[in-house]
Nucleic acid binder design. Structure first.
Length: 416
RNA sequence: GGGUCGGUGGGUGAGUGGUUAAAACCACCAGACUGUAAAUCUGGCGCCUUUACGGCUACGUAGGUUCGAAUCCUACCCGGCCCA
């Protein structure tokens, strides 16, 4: 598909454009294939929901014929981005950063392959670790005013709150700006995209490219996904982050997260996270009342497919229907714990079972759950904390455990 | 390096020798109402057990004073600010 000038308008219509350094300039630049980049810092071994929008935008751009460079921050990760952090982030060990960087590279490669995108993967450690301090100060440092740096929200908030600001943290922005310069030189990269929190960092890169190369580079940031009350989205039921790694957040849980988002978040999520045509997004968004759940299921199916593949998404959908719907279908994608037949023979106290299944963090928590009437075995409430589960509770070798209304867990009897 | 203030539970933040497992708020869990939504109301929210006004652990770390310490003392670690 050839790049075209209307791409910018399409992206705007979908809501991707929160801020742009020069909208007319970028609109014109997008008329021809252009190289852009987006960076991910290795603060964890997996990307999370916050990365979805920039990834989706990268996919749109790539499909329109632009070249993507996905950057893993193996170098900047050694410093740590202070943006939106109330206090100084303790430095991660080199080993930790390396491990996370590797994990993220693998994950990104998989995402890219799964969605058949043609992108380049780079790691800024490859050039940042070789920087020479004096040289860096003379060539890059002199283009930045400390007054201006301190005036930006990130740093100003820190100073105002009296939380202090480490020298290392001030340097983060310069390193990210240097990344942009480096990619401009090495790959002709002219656009950096990111979440809205990255605005100042991205502009610093635009500034540096202009100062040193006398060329115009562009910056574009996307909005953050928020709830109706303006809170950042992306926390799972347990309060944990919504990871894109299936080992950290299973496709089923990932799917359920989207089914459970609040009504007000659906239109934005459909437009930003799925590739559905806008006409369909609008149609789904117009569903009201209970019908809105169908829009959420569609959203969940689409996003899960992008992240975990069509097959995993289909399995998650089927399991969701099986557990919440009028029955039928397989709950195979739902979380599962296997019990040895020997354990089961003696009977397993319900409190232990809830804890083993991860539906309760401790036996105390499991006891509270039962006492408060939130524990179910095979959809029948258990109100005796001393209850014991045995083989008779298993049907076809399986038992369905539930906490509250919507957290399910399957227990399978092994060797029975 | 000197001075000074401070480090409390997932978060913010009270508490300055004795019903303090630690106020309040947020987050979170469960119940009710619902649409696997939101809002609202109710209960809960360190761990363990034979569930008891029981036991254990906890207020940066390690010691000490005391019948008794998050609260006092000492050393150390970490952070803010001021001076250098």
């Amino acid at each position: 598909m050839p790049a075209d000038a209307s791409l910018f308008d399409t992206l705007t219509a979908r809501g991707f454009v929160h801020l742009v350094s020069n909208s007319d300039g970028l609109r014109a630049a997008l008329a021809r294939p252009l190289t852009f980049y987006v960076g991910f810092d290795p603060t964890a071994p997996s990307l999370h929901s916050g990365h979805l929008i920039p990834l989706a935008l990268a996919a749109h751009l790539t499909r329109a014929g632009h070249r993507a460079v996905l950057l893993a921050g193996g170098g900047t990760g050694l410093i740590g981005d202070p943006t939106d952090r109330a206090e100084t982030r303790s430095l991660q060990s080199r080993a930790q950063v390396q491990a996370n960087t590797q994990a993220i590279r693998r994950q990104v490669s998989r995402l890219v392959a799964q969605n058949e995108l043609d992108v380049a993967l780079v790691d800024n450690a490859d050039w940042l670790t070789e920087l020479r301090y004096l040289e860096f100060l003379r060539s890059v440092g002199r283009h930045f005013s400390v007054n201006e740096l301190l005036a930006t929200e990130t740093y100003r908030a820190r100073l105002a709150s009296g939380q202090g600001l480490n020298f290392v943290e001030i340097n983060y922005r310069l390193l990210q700006a240097y990344d942009f310069l480096h990619l401009y030189r090495e790959r002709g990269c002219r656009l950096q995209i990111g979440g809205s929190d990255q605005w100042a960092n991205i502009l610093a890169g635009v500034h540096l490219v202009r100062r040193i190369e006398g060329a115009e580079a562009f910056g574009l940031v996307t909005p953050l996904l928020t709830t109706a009350t303006g809170e950042k989205m992306g926390k799972t039921a347990g309060g944990a982050a919504l990871w894109l790694d299936a080992a950290l957040t299973s496709p089923y849980d990932f799917f359920q997260y989207w089914v459970n988002v609040e009504d007000g978040a659906v239109p934005q999520a459909l437009a930003l996270l799925t590739t559905l045509p806008m006409a369909e997004v609008r149609a789904l968004s117009s569903r009201r009342g209970a019908d809105r759940r169908q829009a959420k299921q569609r959203l969940a199916a689409e996003v899960t497919a992008l992240v975990h593949g069509a097959e995993a998404a289909a399995a998650a959908l089927e399991s969701s229907h099986a557990l919440f719907g009028a029955g039928g279908g397989s709950a195979a994608a739902a979380p599962l714990t296997t019990l040895a037949a020997s354990e089961l023979a003696a009977g397993v106290p319900i409190l232990d079972l809830l804890q083993t299944a991860g539906l309760a963090a401790s036996r105390s928590a499991a006891r509270r759950l039962v006492v408060q009437g939130g524990a179910y075995v095979n959809n029948r409430r258990v109100d005796d904390p001393g209850a014991v589960v045995d083989a008779r509770d298993f049907h076809d070798g399986e038992l369905l455990l539930r906490s509250g209304k919507k957290r399910f867990h399957r227990v399978r009897a092994d060797g029975a």
